[in-house]
Design a protein around this nucleic acid. Structure first.
Lengths: 202, 202
DNA sequence: CTTGAGTGTCAACAGTTGTTGGCCTACATT
DNA sequence: AATGTAGGCCAACAACTGTTGACACTCAAG
């Protein structure tokens, strides 16, 4: 076999441009959402012809799918002491988002999920496959009751700080945000234990 | 002067159609957001020609402005006992949203604010003129520290339940939601008193 | 040198969008 | 009956969208 493998160095020129397109697409989707992002704009950012975007990704929808491979990279919450859980979660997400808000896949997805059904379904999927299991490992059977509330709180933070950019929220430093939100998140985590399965559940 | 006043009954035919357009616009903006809402679709819903929408409102942007006269109708929170504040807030917004999610101006605005700069600015304005003062009346000078967190929590709820429609959140009844969120919101309200003005404020 | 695939550009399509201007009709006032 | 105006419709515009097909360049293999 002397004939088939690809050039060892410079791993194919096309892969590089494909990656360039993908990163431009992520930035555009993050900044503008699905509907306002145009293939022409993505192509221009990637300094390439719009038709190449089509050739590499087939359609705008498939480009969107490709741009949104989401891995929350949640740590093993089973190894975290319950009293540290709230702080760990807040820090984890804030760290991610602060490092590069315009390129974080979760923020990209969230912005589009508000007006795009496809993106919303993707969000549901991530909750079911990543958030719920991770919290289950930390909180056991009580997690089901708490997970939606925690999601509400964390996505609420993402919404007000990175999407709507409320001045009152963007004015705070990440450390101040952790301090400000900690009581609420901690109360939520604690409510898991204190509330027996069904008090007023009809 | 016997000549000028308008017909007393049936207060002008044009007012009625203008109102019809406005209500159709609200529904469309709520369902689709600013970008995906088309004037043609609004006109079709109102059973009228698209050009009439332009004649009455001038442009899509001005139609959007007209559709979004937001009054949160917040009760006088100064009259609410501090320990009831959390529950009052939760109930107030849940009641509003549940009664007609597809026509609530705040949800309409929120959906668009995520991708539309103009709508986002409108949101900032509402926070400054309605939310902040109302909370100020209830919490005094501490309100400034708490208001952003409360906003995060309430908008987080709106986001997950009405915009992204996470199954884990839509599955709950309003009463269950109040119960689930209460510990967190209460902890936030309480944190207003316990945290002196500036511990780590550099 | 010739080939032929890989990589890219250009120009155009068909559909949709916000927006505009001309025309028609009903009807209260003269 | 004549008429002016408010309310409405129709057809078209220019711009922009996702998408497609034909053509040009590069460069290693034969």
């Amino acid at each position: 076999m002397t004939s088939d493998e690809e050039p060892p160095t410079a791993a194919k020129r096309s892969d590089r441009t494909k990656a360039t397109i993908l990163s431009a697409a992520r930035r555009r989707f993050a900044a503008d959402g699905y509907e306002r992002t145009t293939i022409r704009a993505v192509a221009a950012d990637a300094a390439i012809d719009p038709s190449m975007v089509m050739r590499y990704f087939g359609s705008k929808e498939r480009l969107f799918d490709a741009a949104l491979t989401i891995d929350l990279r949640l740590p093993d919450l089973g190894a975290v002491a319950p009293q540290d859980l709230a702080r760990t979660l807040l820090r984890h997400f804030l760290d991610r988002w602060e490092s590069d808000p315009a390129d974080d896949a979760l923020l990209v997805l969230l912005r589009s999920a508000v007006t795009n059904e496809r993106a919303a379904l993707r969000m549901h999927e991530i909750f079911a496959t990543q958030v719920a299991p991770a919290l289950g490992a930390a909180l056991g059977p009580q997690a089901a009751a708490v997970a939606p509330v925690l999601t509400t709180q964390l996505l609420g933070l993402a919404l007000t700080r990175y999407l709507v950019r409320l001045p009152a929220v963007t004015a705070l430093t990440p450390e101040q945000l952790v301090d400000a939100l900690l009581p609420a998140v901690q109360a939520t985590v604690r409510s898991a234990g204190s509330r027996p399965p069904g008090p007023t559940t009809l």
